[in-house]
Structures are given as C-alpha cells and as structure tokens.
Amino acid sequence: MSATTASLEPARGWTHRFRANPTSWIGVAIIVAVILAAVFASWIWPLDPLEQSVVDRLMGPSPEHPLGTDSYGRDVLARLLHAARISLLIGVLSIALAMAVGSAIGIAAGYLGGWFDAAVTSLLDVLLSFPTLLLGLMVVAMLGPSIENLVIAIAITELAPFARVARAPTISLKSRDFVEAGRALGFSDLRLVVVHIIPNLLSEVVVVASLWLATAIRTEASLSFIGLGVKPPTPTWGGMIREGFENILDAPWLAVAPGVAIMVTVLGLNLLGDGLRDAIDPKVRRD
C-alpha cells in the first residue's frame, strides 16, 4: 500500500525535479528548436521546397543552397524544414489518437476487469507481437497511403503500450480508499473514472506519449522510406532519405541531412521523455 501511496503523492516538486535535470533541458531545447523550425520554415529559409530546376540538380552545399539540391534541383534545406511540419504533424496526431483510444481501452479493461479485461489483454498481446513497422505496413497497405491513413496506421501500432500503461494504475486506483469512498457517496462509475482515476494516471500516460512520439516519427519515416508514406512531391524526412538513397554516392548530403534531422528529433524526444519519467516516477528516481 505504501508503495502506491508514494507514486501518487502529489506533484509537489516534480516540476522542480524536471527543471533540476540538465538532460531534460537539452531535450526541451531540441524539441522547441525543431518545432520552431517547422512552424517558421518559410521565414527561416524562404525557398520553395517544391520548385524544380534541372540546371541546379545535385549541387553540393553552397551559400545559395546550404544543404545542396536534390536530383530535381530542389533546395534540400527548404525541403528539410517543410518535411519537419509533416513529420511532427503525423507524429503528434497519431500519438494523440493512440493515447486517447489506447488509454480508454486500458482504463475500461482495468476498471471493468473479469472476462473483458482478459479478452482485451490477450488482444493487446497479439497486437504487441507484431513488429511496429510490419503492423504499420499492413495497415497502410490495406487503407492506402495518405496522411490520414498514415496517422491511423501509426496510432494502431502504438495502441498497446498506452492501453497497458493506463490499465495497471486503473486496477490499483479502483480499489483505493478514495475511490471506494466515492462509491460509498453514491458517485457513478463514469464520475469515479473521469474525476478520480484518470487525473491520477495522466502523468504516467503523458510520459509514455513523449517517449512513443519518437517511435511514431521513426515509423512515419520508415513507412515513407519504403514508399508507403505521404506521396511525393510533399517532402517528408523518410521520403527524402529514400530519394537521396538513389544518389548516395554522388550526393551523400541528400540522405544524411534528413537522417540527422530524424536522429536529433528522436534524441530530443527521448531526453524529454526520460526527464519527465524520472521527475514524475519516484521509484525510478531512487535508482
């Protein structure tokens, strides 16, 4: 009992612990920079990411094109910045969807228990047994490539972690005295879940979201890389790597630039997520 009490002790100071951790600051800085770059892409580098110029194809880095041009003569820096929009958008939307649906499934399973819980848990195990990329590939292949379908596909691949993370605390919270007290006071199940259970497990779900956002961005890039992502000419990081791959020997910057962008973004999200987790979960902190 006392262990769960500890993890539920209020947020007194978790923001302080987060701020005191230098690595979480690096994560925050990276993510803020990536978001700003995506939002202000047209102001930062006002070249059109879609404008082709056969004369300028496969040019190396130069003052006019700091990251060179691709095989259609398009400016790589402009494409990289605009691709950040698509990648972040798909990542955030798919995680939001997975978080909403997955947590709802997990909370329902944990709260209702019994055969429903057993059935849901088994289905989640099946879902988890597929590699993320393979599952995403199957769903996109069934639905057809588009931004909406990509969001749905990536969300499906990440349902299970959210359901699991929401289910476990629901089970321990529903037998806690303050939930029992609510039941004794005549509160409805819906009120108990929404008002008394969800706010107490939200922090854990948010930590998982920040960690899995990195995976979502990677999955999007991988699907784009194998040609199941957003259709050309819309720039995405995965798509840019694939296009650059054709000229990897003549113009390595084409594949390296979006690769570094993905790596930096994923690193930033992981640092941020780790920082959040360490700050919120006192059990991990002690180790």
Binding site: P10, F178, A184, L185, P199
Partner: peptide, 16 residues
C-alpha cells in the same frame, strides 16, 4: 450511511 476509512493517506484523492 457513510464510511470513514483507516488510512487517511489513501482515502483522499491527492489531486482534489
């Protein structure tokens, strides 16, 4: 009919 619980740390929602 109402109940008072044993553990005053577990019987109150920490976020309310």
């Amino acid at each position: 009919m109402q109940i008072v619980f044993q553990d005053p740390y577990a019987s109150l929602n920490p976020r309310r």
